[in-house]
Write a protein that binds this DNA or RNA. Structure first.
Lengths: 356, 356
DNA sequence: CTGAAAGCGCTTACAG
DNA sequence: CTGAAAGCGCTTACAG
């Protein structure tokens, strides 16, 4: 009695051996009640479970992972959890992993490549079952490193140059197309694509889509491409100031902004400057971020369906994990974006949100 | 040569023993170059590092943690990463842990008590160095379980009934006080406290603060308390609809909403209903969420300083970890909130943001 | 400064 | 259905 293990002593948790001793069985049997309760005799089961309860035993996952040679965790390295698109992806990943009885561990790289690599290494060392990566530019090194260690990795929202992993994408060309096409359908003839230099893939592909929509118009619609330094609210407002100085007759009547933040900054600026949205200028954002509908005029935008991306990526990963490496073939899943019409293209602030 | 370990074979990463063999040293020495490079001879160091590089060796953290008996990870179980307040806390925790050379692993409980407990258990099994918990109501069971296993845990933004752990709080009574006091200073005499039933601690404490500010007025200010079901945008808009029906002469001229979302929903509703903010009714939110300034009128609110909370909590945790249990005394850190004045109490949408 | 050996706490065939 | 034994990949005193 004197040396019965004490559950409450910090740094010294009861071990499986303690449970075995108390229950009067072998360690293998305790392991079996933990992992294959079906194959142990009911009376033994009960005895062991009682021992577990009275000792407050908690399995040591490091030992489990080491002995079993596999982990039940999936690491999700996300660019920036401040962006609701990534939060949606995380939600999707969480629900996708729940069924497979796995857990999502989140590493927030906060738009910092060094932190992204640090989390990748951490998950590598932790020998997680697999890694979900919604990366920064350019993740190539990190991806190569993971794959060369035989670690499974699925990429989200990034189109790699060489396809040595599964990828889940939204068709960003289509995102740009839908946004521009919607403005044209609403009667806009002088469009602006408000974006930044091409160091971010979606900027590039959405641009192509905008151009395609304009090209389809057969010359009746013009396109001006404006590139700011950043894609945030302040840069949108900055462009608004410039926009307000342009002659009314010739300035754009429709703006596709490559992010919702940029769109809302622009909208905020022009509304403060006395313009009416969408009468004077219609605005479409991209990504349908949580904050998108909260501007002075509710923002029309294009839904990326982050939750579906997270779910799809998790399915691909779990499938890849559960199949021998040589039977797996990498796949690219391309999801379709959806236009979400709101007041910034369909009426005034005080009017209805989404009816013409 | 034939059986040199292959770095690229999935599921079979090179081990420390492989490195030792290739470098012609013992495993203990490899371990030393990994953990105490200072005590190994330069020539040996180089030889081992080369072996590590050519093999693409990655340390198995499960084995490391098991042998060393400690982890370099801190688990952060957060209520809901959709709320920017918690994202701020995570940022604070990340910067606080970086100096200590530890890593934050995030578990998003998504407002679900079962998931919160699942992550707590996961981190318990992982024997993380410590746990940061920004909890739901009521986390008592989970906390008890952690502590009974000797696991260090620091609570954020929640005031436990019995202080068996360190806690970091913002003075929520003061949050309510600042909000109401500000409205009174601006000349409001008929206040509403827009909140919900008391199942969430901040609702309770902020209410006390609002009452204190009203009481200080010595009877010149009245207070009506309105309790909705939820604290989101829709419930705010719902109250706006009701508000618009009240007689102009007697309805409130100042509203303290217990969350920014609720405040913005209310604001959206009354502005759509034709009222002017703050002329007809001034509004203050709480928490200074990322979306707070994005309403039709930029929202005055009270800053919780989530980043400072995360930082403080991490410091407390790291201190607790590094000290023998019997030398540690649990502490409560109470941070002061700060009023952030914006247009919803200080002018009109088209006017300046924060000048009277 | 380095090596040999024990041990961390589990799981997994393998007998029986 | 259960036990004995080996082993997962590290770290940590301890000698030398």
């Amino acid at each position: 009695m004197a040396d019965r293990p004490r559950a409450s002593r910090a740094g010294h948790n009861p071990s499986l051996a303690d449970v075995a001793a108390l229950a009067g069985v072998s360690r293998g049997t305790v392991s079996n009640v933990l992992n294959h309760p079906g194959i142990v005799a009911p009376s033994t089961l009960e005895r062991v479970q009682n021992a577990i309860a009275t000792l407050g035993y908690v399995r040591n996952d490091a030992a489990r992972a080491l002995a079993a040679g596999k982990s039940k965790s999936i690491g999700f390295v996300s660019t920036n959890i401040e962006n609701s698109l990534f939060v949606d992806m995380i939600h999707g990943a969480q629900s996708g992993s729940r069924d497979a009885n796995m857990t999502i561990l989140i590493g927030n790289s906060a738009d910092d490549l060094a932190q992204q690599n640090a989390y990748l290494d951490l998950f590598d060392e932790a020998r997680v079952a697999g890694v979900l990566l919604a990366p920064m530019e350019d993740p190539t090194d990190g991806i190569k490193r993971m794959r060369s260690h035989g670690r499974q990795l699925v990429l989200l929202n990034y189109r790699p140059h060489d396809h040595d992993c599964c990828v889940v994408l939204v068709d960003n060309e289509q995102v740009g197309y839908l946004a521009a096409r919607h403005l044209i359908d609403r009667g806009c003839t002088r469009l602006v694509y408000l974006a930044s230099h091409e160091n971010w893939q979606p900027v590039h592909y959405r641009r192509l889509g905008v151009r395609r929509a304009v090209a389809e118009s057969g010359g009746t619609v013009t396109l001006q491409e404006v590139d700011k330094e950043q894609l945030d609210f302040a840069n949108g407002a900055e462009y608004a100031a410039q926009f307000l100085l342009e002659p009314t007759a010739t300035r754009a009547d429709g703006v596709v902004a490559v992010t919702d933040e940029l769109a809302n900054g622009f909208m905020d600026g022009v509304v403060r400057g006395g313009l009416s949205v969408p009468r004077d200028v219609a605005i479409v954002g991209c990504e349908n971020n949580r904050a998108a509908p909260r501007g002075p005029v509710s923002l029309t935008t294009v839904e990326m369906n982050g939750e579906a991306m997270g779910l799809a990526a998790t399915s691909l990963l779990i499938e890849e994990i559960s199949v021998p490496a040589d039977e797996h073939e990498h796949r690219v899943v391309m999801l379709e974006p959806v236009l979400v019409p709101r007041a910034s293209t369909f009426g005034t602030y005080l009017g209805a949100d989404s009816s013409p």
